[in-house]
Design a protein around this nucleic acid. Structure first.
Lengths: 151, 151
RNA sequence: CGACACCGCUUACU
DNA sequence: AGTAAGCGGTGTCG
């Protein structure tokens, strides 16, 4: 049995500094949906969190196909960014500390315990499950903010 | 009377080897603007060229305040890299030949004929004149490439 | 090792 | 039209 899951993250006013309200969601094909909220985060943290939460809802050793529109997440595994990060002591190509190390380490652990296949989907391109995940992530922000922004 | 001039260089596809299309620009405060194009160059050559062209538009003996975001250019004068280069026969600290010697020698000549003050500005930090020089340098590349890339 | 630029790419938002 | 979060690299020097 193989899990197929679509993940997405969203972050309001992502151009503002210091972190902003964000939401994440994961949608299992023919399965459950999960979503969550963070009052102070970034778009990339939400994308990472969405995948982490998805994998947490599968058992160790499971076969999982993860669909995400985040090149940040997908390419880290497809291009094995970890190799360079560890060689440089968790510094990126510019020499600065890798961002979101906490989430990256959690995610890699979950991935190593499973058989994960990565699928890059194009955002806002009509994919039904991706659109659903996007919708849930945005909805999570509204609910997290107290539902006062149903506009 | 003192000239205040902002300079900048740009180079497309700077990650590719062998030189790429580049542009330079200099903006005189309360004065004219100049820009130019080179079909095969590097980012640092464009930064150097921008200053050279700026000084060429001032008279010998003039007092000039040069604003640049390039530590490569600024530190050469503030830290007097020339001293070491000449002592070693135009070799750098690693023992390799100094790059861009043609431009360095032209620039030093122009500087010696004037009273130049060097100001290091932070790139892309909202400085109005620095942004303007950047814009002109990028525009020069487009025009140099034939204006076919107005996308 | 340090520094400053220059670029390429993707996503997220306004 | 623009900005932010993030990654990969080269150009150059001490």
């Amino acid at each position: 049995m193989t899990y197929h899951v679509y993940t997405d993250g969203a972050c309001r006013n992502n151009q503002a500094p210091g972190g902003q309200p964000g939401g994440w969601a994961c949608v299992f094909v023919d399965g459950p949906e999960y979503s969550g909220f963070d009052p102070r985060t970034t778009n990339n943290r939400m994308e990472l969190t969405a995948v982490i939460e998805a994998l947490k809802h599968t058992e160790k050793g499971a076969e999982v196909v993860v669909h995400s529109d985040s090149a940040y997440v997908i390419n880290a595994f497809l291009q094995n960014w970890f190799q360079g990060w560890e060689r440089r002591g968790w510094k990126n190509a510019k020499g600065d500390p890798v961002e979101n190390q906490d989430l990256w380490k959690t995610l890699r652990q979950l991935v190593e315990e499973r058989r994960v296949t990565w699928i890059k989907v194009k955002g806002h391109a009509g994919d039904r499950f991706n659109e659903r995940a996007d919708q849930l992530a945005v909805e999570a922000i509204r609910q997290g903010l107290g539902g006062k922004d149903t506009h």
